[in-house]
Computed example of a mutant assay.
Amino acid sequence: MTTLRARAEQYLVMRRALGSKLETQGPHLTSFVRFCEQRGAAHVTADLAIAWATQTGRGSSDEVYQARRLDTVRIFARHLQALDPATEIPPEDVLPRRYRRIPPYLYSPDEVVALMSAADDLRPGIRAATWRTLIGLLAVTGMRSGEACHLGRDDVDLHAGTIEIVDSKFGKSRLLFLHPSTIIELRDYARVRDEQMPEPRAGTFLVNSRGRPLDNHNIQHTFAALVTAAGIQAPPGRRAPRLHDLRHVFAVATMLDWYRDGDNVQARLPVLSTWLGHVDPKSTYWYLQAIPELLALAVGRLERQPDRRAAS
């Protein structure tokens, strides 16, 4: 008899073979299977799924987070029901999912400089150089931190001035073009890296103090320390500044420049979506609602347009 754990493992292998990374869903499903095993359950039931989704390891009471956990089980249950008719698929409306995107912290140019200066105090020297380069790279390209961590040396072409993001989120790849000043900084980093790490243990462009790739999960702790060292604080009631917010800084700065230059922002948003690796422009449109300055510029643009109805 095939166990629930074996079927979950087969399911995860199949999903990954089809291109899904399952960085969050994989661990969640494994946790759910362990939850079932501890209760001696051989089949997935709605009650078990709801109990697991709402009893989070960190005691989170966030309803959206719990609903997402339940979604992981629901998708698996749909697959499993064809193999095990006793499987129950949790209903979609059992947990509220009032999704709310929290506005990002938008670092000022001076704050980005302060973060890079704080990175200079890290030891050993290669760690300081890597962090200074990572912060600057995220701020001027808008790539995801995980994408920067996984960049291979061959992905960074400093002669052509391009960076290729290969098989990133949603299985998409894209090409980023670098400003000449960014190329200079990356060349300086590559020189320092090769001097201090002549035989690194990884082929990634950015390396840690042991010559290995940066860990996208662990670097969040170092960045939090740099935020404190730089004297950056979020306004009361707002989420603490994150490394990922540097991506938002790039997106917002790009759109602000377009508005100020009089460009047709709506027509250019798909370009920015492609650059950022968004699956569709809807994710990019969110910035217009989340950032007051962008919204004010958009409204001002509309108010300056002639009333077409009056002209007709």
Rank of each mutant, 00 (worst) to 15 (best):
D257K: 14
Q66K: 13
R39L: 13
E195G: 07
L4H: 04
K169D: 07
A311C: 11
D71A: 14
D110G: 04
L214C: 08
A296L: 07
R309G: 13
E293V: 10
R309S: 14
L137C: 06
W286C: 07
L158P: 03
V140R: 07
E88T: 05
Q266A: 15
D93W: 03
D71I: 10
R98E: 08
P85A: 03
Y99P: 05
L243W: 06
R100D: 06
W275A: 05
S20Y: 11
T284R: 01
Y65Q: 12
P27C: 03
T130L: 02
D307L: 10
E195L: 13
L95W: 00
R210F: 08
P109L: 02
H244Y: 10
Q220E: 10
T30R: 15
R100N: 06
H221I: 11
R247S: 04
T182S: 14
Q305N: 13
W275R: 07
T3F: 06
R5A: 14
I232Q: 00
F223D: 03
I102F: 00
Q233H: 15
F223Y: 06
W131F: 13
L80S: 03
S108T: 15
T162K: 03
R304G: 15
M255T: 12
R132N: 14
Y105H: 01
V33N: 04
I219M: 08
Y287T: 02
H43F: 11
W52G: 04
A49E: 06
D257W: 10
F177D: 12
L95E: 02
P292W: 11
F35H: 08
G19A: 05
C36Y: 04
C149S: 08
D93H: 09
Q25I: 10
S273I: 07
A8R: 03
A229K: 15
R153G: 14
G231Y: 09
Q266C: 11
G40I: 01
I165T: 09
G211T: 07
A42E: 14
T133G: 02
L122E: 04
P270E: 07
L256P: 01
P124F: 08
Y287M: 00
F205Q: 08
G146D: 01
R309M: 12
M116Y: 07
V192N: 09
A190T: 07
E111V: 06
P85T: 03
Y105L: 00
P281C: 10
I75L: 11
R15W: 00
F32W: 05
A267C: 09
L269Q: 00
P281M: 05
V299K: 05
V112T: 09
G171C: 11
E185A: 12
H179F: 09
R123I: 13
S117A: 15
S181C: 11
F205R: 01
P270V: 14
T228R: 14
N218S: 11
P124R: 03
V252N: 01
L243A: 05
R68P: 07
